[in-house]
Design a protein around this nucleic acid. Sequence first.
DNA 1: CGGCTGATGATCT
DNA 2: GATCATCAGCCGG
Length: 186
Amino acid sequence: MDSVKLARYLIGKTLVRELPKGRITGRIVETEAYLPQDAACHAFNGPTKRNRSLFLDHGHAYVYFIYGNHFMLNVCSEREGIGAGVLLRALEPLEGIPFMKRGGRNHMLQKDLTRGPGRLAAALRVDMKFDGLNLCAKGPLWLGEAVKSVGRIGRSVRIGITKDAHRRLRFYERGNPFVSGPKLLR
DNA sequence: CGGCTGATGATCT
DNA sequence: GATCATCAGCCGG
């Protein structure tokens, strides 16, 4: 498996969250690859209790908690034993928008509900209980097929990191209003 | 719009 | 004790 290929491949695919009361779906519009031999990758210093699911086979989930507030959802991107993944950074909401968790107040704009990795996870109620889940099998959280064609894919440096920050491993659908990050990188 | 800052807690040194 | 793959709120232009 090639992590960069997976990061590109995931653009346009759907992410599905099954809730007891209904379903949330979104179309992935922004990803970042974290490679083996990449100082920014959580697996860079070898397995620990926190990052162990990043070493699962491609298609499994790696979820972690950061900044005391946010969960980040990644898709493992290499074969079992190799720590690498793709961070899901933004979705275009498709179904179940009323179920999406709003950020504290009612006035959060709909376009911001799934824009950015922390808000994406909050909207889909992704937390540590999904760490290690196989996302390729239908269940409470899984990856589905693309529902429409994908526009031109842009590429940039990754957002919010300091190590290996020059590597251009972020991918996004150009011009899509649900892509996060500074305007220059959309 | 861009830029800055504090919140908040797990993890690792 | 420092770091951190973020975000909302606030400020100035």
